[in-house]
Amino acid sequence: MTELMHTPLFGLTLTLLAYQCAMWAYTRSGKMAMLHPTISGAVLIAIALKALQLDYFAYYQDINWLNFLLGPATVALAVPLYRQLPLLRELAGPLLVTLFFGATFACASALLLAWWLGATQETLLSLMTKSITTPIAITVTEEIGGITSVAVGSVILTGVAGITTISWLFERLNIRDDRLWGFCLGLAAHAIGTSRAFERSPVAGAFASLALCLTGAFTALFVPLAVSWFA
């Protein structure tokens, strides 16, 4: 009987079940940031694996083909980006300056803080992609030799840190323009920030998607090059 637990079918059923439960809890809680399905679903999977005494890496192998879909999903991000083109033209200059500065700042601040607190080189490499959307972060992290799980964890927790603090922060900074609000959240907190921005207004959501795509593209270009120069 137990050999059934080591099949892709079991792994996929477990994944979908965890997703459904996570989605239910997230919707029921009124979309509480801490219960985002990627976080709560991951916790449920971890609990299930521990309870059933299954090996995480074996499970990951079983559902590996799901990761294949991350490829076309990354390509698909070109569609929302294309739809934001007219919005981008309107504020192109300031947005691009902020993008270059912000994406570099996100990366550098993470590296400095972690290095100061004694992180190893492998951890540092896995933190470089924390502010970009996960499918791009995974491929870039694999490219530069970081740990995928750490990279994904840092991306998710970055998103949580972003959406739980932005309202309070930007109220204090007196920033109420939805375009600025959305762009900064999308830049720092990628897809999780973007879905939060859509809850504020369609304009905030559009600017967040724009920042999400641009930060992802810029970081994907810049990080592997920077690593190959300095490492």
Binding site: A42, I63, N67, G153
Partner: peptide, 14 residues
């Protein structure tokens, strides 16, 4: 995407 990202994210616990 949120579903595709769950399994890699669970790796943080391992």
């Amino acid at each position: 995407l949120p579903m595709l990202l769950m399994a890699p994210a669970a790796g943080v616990f391992f």
